[in-house]
Every structure is written in structure tokens, then in C-alpha cells.
Design a protein around this nucleic acid. Structure first.
Lengths: 343, 343
DNA sequence: TTACAATGCTAAATCGTTTTATTGTTAATT
DNA sequence: AATTAACAATAAAACGATTTAGCATTGTAA
């Protein structure tokens, strides 16, 4: 019951393996194989349930049919694991397998991972890039290996990407808080040069400026231990008691913030209104439920994979830059709704 | 700047590729290659940063160095994605890559996936098995392809597994509610023959019987839409108003339950006490925080990979059954603490 | 009748390894 | 001096596909 090879089916049918290969690869017409023989081979292959040896194909063609998905953290359900899942499904139905790994937003780790995969093992990369891996990406593109950046891009790097409109969605979320009558809206984000974070900040600042409000911005350290950041948030909130609403720039910052507000026994939304960037499936269950900017996960996944497959199939050069921007949705929930509308 | 092959380094050094291969595979001694030559080759390989072509190796040896991790749902952060992440890391540092996929607890989908991977593409499988794939697993084991079941096993299937002690942890969780003075503790689970679910139920029932309490069990349908199950839970709770505590047998059931309790405006833990199986990183943030049975994710991952690697390295036969049971921890939080101790 | 193209198919090289079988040396034993 | 043993290294055959170049055969035009 061992696997049969193309040679076996050739022998069985009294046909050369060349012919079988041509037929199997849909080159029957092109190579002028007769219809009768084509059908015969196809039928037999179907009957004995033959599947080609992927490794032999890979060795010969130099293509592994493997896509690597490098996200910040697979175990961060809030966005990446859902994208991962959808990508995997779609890739699969197109004959590609997906290998996942976490970058931890660590530039060294990511570089190592790319190097490791580089032995032509991987046909294409989908990456949520940490800062500092521009050179590695350029090198991949130079070798015509497609790279699609997801969720964010890198300043100065010419590379295809699929992202949400961070500026606009952040502006809208802030505007929503303003419309609800919140006065002193603070913004918690992380120290970062990532363009998507800069855009979110700009969105917040524009909305605040439009409304003649002072921005209240506090940046945290992604790489610091959670307790440290929780303390920072706590301190900032207590030092600025006028704060009556908070916009968290990511879901994990929101989680830190929720812990703080819990400890301080601040009622939401009575004492502070809340909006978070990135929805999670528990925000709607939280008590009160949390208003969030939701990234359209399906749309993002779809665009990423379409770009990837089109490039793999030679429709585009890897170096050709395609930037897709999709709109985000503001899911208004209890945490940002003023009970009493101010006069 | 193309990749160099073993042939290139042989030519460069005036040595046969056989010799190079032996040295690279650590067979220098065994094959009586002189130390001098061994060092020379090793140094050169180091210098030019040669790495073997994985596909050629795979083709020749029939081993892909790929492990497949099939979990119920990668995007279910609450347990699987964390395990996935740890497994990936550990596998990676042992020279293996991991391919992930979701079974959706669907037997047909899982069978198809296994079949798809079967062309000797995958060296080993880690599976949280849906019921009904016993034959496929036996076939893998017969071909000496290691399979490790995670989180649960299948009745009557002789296969290695790593699991939590479901009976004991469920017993303890129930006992905890009893100790807190809750009287009518109900249990929500899903319709299933999975042994781990049966064990959880037995744990609940034993604890209840010990305390002379009537069990209140409601089973839901995993495959039904969430709204349906939410309705079922709601109906059951309203039809049994005596219920003053609930034990949810999984985290997703707990999520459904939380939605119900929210809608019914039941105060937790005043109106009903709550415990859930499977911790999530938001349970501690929920208001009130939710008591949960936490699976020791690191320990589980470690055991799984150790078993897998040992089997891959030939320390065990694939068919040899190793069953690892690790203890779970009860994380007591606000949702199960009686404010007023009853007389 | 010869030349040439179209048709239908195949031999053999190749991808980069691993591994089996083998060949030359040199040293030791009879 | 002839045989054997140990040592060092290698040639060549896989693994299972893809692909280039080419071989017969038949039909058509000159």
C-alpha cells in the first residue's frame, strides 16, 4: 500500500512518464497529446488516486507551495489568530500550505526567522513587520519572492501591504467620544515609529484639535512587563483627574487599562468613557460592553491572499507595490455612551 | 548570490560530495573520515554559510521535518492558540517546522486534512481529535507516523496523549462552589462522547453526590449557532430559578452564559456564582472577574513536544502508548465568592 | 518523388541530497 | 614476499518529479 509514483502509472499504462507529467500539469493540448490518451491517463490517475510527491516537485521546480505567515503573536487572538485562520483556509483551497510564526515584534528574531526560511523553502511571506527588517524584505523582493505586509507597513519601504485606514477610523472614534459629550479624552498608545500608530495618533489629534480640545497623550513601552505599564497608566490617570474618557490605541493596552480602572474602581462609562482600537470577542461581553474599532478581518485576509496568489502566479512582479486600504468599523457599545446627555 | 550546493563545496575543496555529506551528518567518525579533513570541511561550510537544500533532503530521506498541529480552532485563543505558539517555538528550536490547521471539530474535514497531508509530507501529528477519526489515526500509527493527542482522547483508541486531569479538576471546582455555600449548582456542557467531557461531568456529579445535592445538567449543541445555545441556556436558567451557581464546562459555553446573564441582568456572584473550565486572559479582567479551571499550558505543550520528538527520534515506536496526565489549577476569582456567608 | 511541416510521443538530463558498494592506500601479520 | 586488515575517500544509484530536445510517423505542397 505504498504510494505510487508517476513512473508506476506510466508503466501500468505503457506510457512514458513525460507524457503523464504533461497531462497532469494540464499541458496536454500545448504538448499535442491526443485526447484519447489524455483521458485514459486522467481516468487511471483518478482511479488509483494518485497524488504527486510534493517534495520531488519542490526540488525540481524550486517552489515549495508554502506561504509563511509571520504575525506579532499568534496567541493574540484579538486580531492575528483570526487572520491566520482565514488565510490558512484560503491558501489551502488554492493548493498552498501555511506556516505560522510569531515575531514578538522583535527585529532580531524576525530576521533570524526569515534567514532560516530563506533556503528557497518558502514561496511567499505575509508579515506584520517589526521596525528594522527593511533590508531583509528588500532582499526577498529582489529575489522576486513576494512579501505582503499586513496590518502595518514600514516607512520608506516600497512593499505591497493591506491595512486599515488608521487615521480615519481613529478620527471617527475620537469624534464619537466628543459627540457623546466627553470633555477630556486621553489617548494611550505605545512608543513606536510604526506608521499605523502614527496615523492613529494623528486621527485622535485632528479630532481633538477640531473640537478645540487639549490632547492628552501617554505612550507606553511595548517591551516592558505588563505590571509596569499598568502602573504607568494608573499614575497618569490619577495625575490627570480631569480625564473623563480614554481612547486605547490597541486592544492589549485596553486590557491593561481595564485592569487599572478596575483597581481604581472607576465606573465605566460614568466616570470615564472608553473606546479601544481592535475589537476582541470578549469586548462585547465585558460589563459594560466596550466600544471598539473593528478591523474587517475577512476583507483584510481576502485582500492579502489575493495579492499573494496573484504575485505567485506571476500576474505581478514581487517588487510591484500594491497598497490596499480597507475601512474599519466603529462598534459602538456601552462603554462610550453617556447616560446623561450634558446640557 | 545563488545558494550553493553540497556539490559546490565539494568542488571548491577538492573533496567528494559523499565525504561532505558524511561530515555534515555527523558520520565522520563512523565513516572514518580523518579529523583534518573533517575540520577543513566544517570550517569551510561555516565560512560560506552553507545550508542544505531541505527539499532534496526531504525527497531523499522521505522526512519533511514538518509537524502538523491540528486543533479545534486556532482562532480560539483561550487554549489552542497558546499551545500552538509554544509548540511552534519548541519545535523550531529542534529543527522542525509546524503547520497549523483547524479541525472545527468536524470529522469529515479532519479526515480530509489528514489524507491531504498523508503523502509522506508530514512527519508527525499533534491532534485535538474530533470523534470519528479513529481509523485514520490507526492508519498513521501503522505506518509508524507519530500521533500525539492533545487535550482529549478518543474512547477505545490506543494512542499517546497529553491531557489534564478532567475528573479531579472538575470535582475540585464544584467542591469550591459547594464550600462557598452555593446550593443549587447547575452544569452546562455540550452533547459529546468525548472522554474529557465525560470526566468533567463525572467530577461535577461526584462532588454534588458527596454533598447530597441534585445535579442540574444541561447539554448544548456545539454545532448549533451561538444564538440557539444562548437561548437554550437562558430558557434553562429561567425554568430553574433555584439555580444559584453555574459551572460552565468550557470557556465558549461560559461566553454564551455570560451573554445570557447580562441580558437577564443577573448579578454575579450575588444572584449566581460562576466557575468556568478553561481560563482566558480576559476572565481576570471581566467585571466581576471569573473563577476558572486553568490548564497548565506550558506543561502540556512541553509534554506533547517531548513525546513527539522522542518518537520521531526513534526512542519509541509510534504505536507505543504514552499517556500523560497533568494537574489543572483552580484560579479562584470574584465570580465564585459568596459575599455573605449563609448561616 | 522529394521536402517539409504537423502530429504524437519519449529519452534523458536535471534538481541536491543520502547511502550503498567499492576502490586505492598503507600498516600489520604470516 | 604475500596476504590481510584497517583506513580514507569516492563513484554511482537512488528519491520522484519537470522539462528540453528530439524521434518517428503521417499528411501536404512543390
Amino acid at each position: 500500500m505504498k504510494k505510487l509514483s508517476i513512473r508506476d502509472i506510466g508503466r501500468e499504462l505503457g506510457v512514458s512518464i513525460t507524457t503523464v507529467s504533461f497531462i497532469l500539469n494540464g499541458k496536454a493540448k500545448e504538448k499535442r497529446i491526443s485526447e484519447a490518451l489524455t483521458k485514459k491517463v486522467l481516468d487511471f490517475v483518478e482511479k488509483v488516486n494518485y497524488t504527486p510527491n510534493v517534495m520531488a516537485q519542490a526540488l525540481r521546480t524550486g517552489k515549495s507551495k508554502l506561504i509563511c505567515l509571520m504575525v506579532e503573536d499568534i496567541s493574540n487572538n484579538f486580531f492575528f489568530s483570526q487572520v491566520a485562520r482565514l488565510i490558512e483556509e484560503k491558501a489551502h483551497s488554492n493548493g498552498y500550505r501555511v506556516i505560522f510564526c510569531s515575531t514578538d515584534n522583535d527585529k532580531t528574531k524576525t530576521k533570524e526567522l526569515i534567514k532560516l526560511f530563506r533556503d528557497r523553502l518558502i514561496d511567499g511571506y505575509i508579515i506584520t513587520p517589526p521596525e528594522g527588517i527593511e533590508k531583509e524584505i528588500v532582499r526577498l523582493l529582489d529575489d522576486n519572492i513576494p512579501v505582503i505586509l499586513a496590518d502595518r507597513n514600514l516607512p520608506g519601504l516600497r512593499c505591497s501591504s493591506v491595512m486599515v485606514d488608521n487615521y480615519e477610523s481613529s478620527f471617527n472614534a475620537t469624534q464619537h467620544l466628543i459627540n457623546q459629550g466627553f470633555e477630556n479624552i486621553s489617548y494611550f498608545s505605545i512608543e513606536s515609529n510604526q506608521p499605523q500608530m502614527a496615523d492613529r495618533l494623528r486621527g485622535y489629534e485632528s479630532a481633538m484639535a477640531n473640537a478645540n480640545r487639549q490632547p492628552l497623550v501617554k505612550n507606553l513601552d511595548y517591551y516592558a512587563p505588563a505590571e509596569k505599564n499598568i502602573e504607568q497608566i494608573s499614575d497618569y490617570i490619577q495625575q490627570n483627574p480631569q480625564i473623563d474618557a480614554i481612547f486605547f490605541a490597541t486592544n492589549y493596552i485596553c486590557n491593561w487599562g481595564l485592569e487599572v480602572l478596575r483597581k481604581l474602581k472607576y465606573k465605566i462609562p460614568d466616570r470615564v468613557g472608553l473606546v479601544s482600537y481592535d475589537d476582541t470577542n470578549l469586548f462585547k461581553l465585558y460589563n459594560p460592553s466596550i466600544t471598539a474599532v473593528a478591523q474587517p478581518i475577512e476583507q483584510i485576509s481576502e485582500n492579502i491572499l489575493r495579492l499573494m496568489l496573484d504575485t505567485l502566479h506571476g500576474k505581478y512582479e514581487a517588487k510591484e507595490v500594491h497598497e490596499v486600504v480597507v475601512p474599519a468599523r466603529l462598534l459602538v457599545r456601552e462603554s462610550s455612551i453617556r447616560q446623561v446627555v450634558p446640557a
